[in-house]
Design a protein around this nucleic acid. Structure first.
Lengths: 142, 142
DNA sequence: CTAGGTGCAAAAGGTTTGCGGTTAA
DNA sequence: TTAACCGCAAACCTTTTGCACCTAG
């Protein structure tokens, strides 16, 4: 990880009242290296390759810390394990019914989605849009 | 359950190649009675009140059958148990960060959301929008 | 009749927790 | 110095599975 990223992470954690640790840096690093929306267990396996002593509990702790300081998003897939996404640009997810792959879809494809005016009283903090169907590769094999 | 609903359920199941059973009718009945997005376990508890012999495995089987024949939707909440919703009108869900409650939000509040034009190759089948923040009751207590 | 569904209990995930030791600030 | 964090292992919760029996069509 380059210096600027380390400093950025440090500041973000501090802002949320969380400490900088080697494990958190490493877990974030793992997420940034592969944008394939891994599960906690997949992050664990990859992290162990260079940090053999890290534990699954720590991976969950680190992922939670990264989510809390807004560097990572959680992605929910039907009944499956939670996946993690380090892309914080405004986007949504497309989950393929065939292969289970998760793809980032830029928000430019969602015209007008910002015009959400909820019923009186609701205070909106975040929105999560997930799309389902066939990804290009699986669609072409049908 | 009234006759028309039973017949509707029967037809829907048949169309999907699934059988009509007393348990499926009963689970659907339980879902229709309370629109509070129960988990499988909550459905199980309610179903047992009038069908003491039903098992949790059967509840999952019935819920899956109802989802397959498009009478029920699954609602994913971060890392929590999957919830089930028998409202098939176009709507999305608002999940309260404070109390965890799930609320149906009519699609009229989501202007323009139908204009989704995905990148080449993606075949869209369904979309799921989930909103987060504070529900009216919890927001007023802050 | 028989493929599909049910109930039960055990197993398989996925996530959280408790605890003694370690470390960032 | 000390509250926060770590690694480990056990616990917990949700969902799935295998099997013998049952039933809708």
């Amino acid at each position: 990880m380059q210096k600027p990223q380390k400093q950025e992470l440090n500041e973000r954690l501090a802002t949320s009242g969380l400490r900088f640790t080697a494990q958190r840096q490493h877990v974030y690093d793992v997420l940034l290296q592969t944008r394939d929306h891994p599960t906690a267990e997949e992050v664990f396996i990859r992290a162990k390759q260079t940090s053999p002593d890290i534990s699954i509990a720590t991976v969950y702790n680190c992922l939670d810390a990264l989510v809390k300081c807004n560097l990572v998003r959680q992605v929910n897939v039907d009944r499956g394990a939670t996946r993690f996404c380090p892309n914080m640009k405004d986007h949504c997810h497309f989950c393929c019914d065939e292969c289970g792959g998760v793809f980032d879809i830029d928000s430019k494809y969602l015209n007008g989605i910002d015009q959400i005016h909820l019923p009186k009283g609701f205070k909106l903090a975040r929105r999560e849009i997930s799309l389902k169907g066939f990804c290009p590769e699986c669609a072409s094999q049908k």
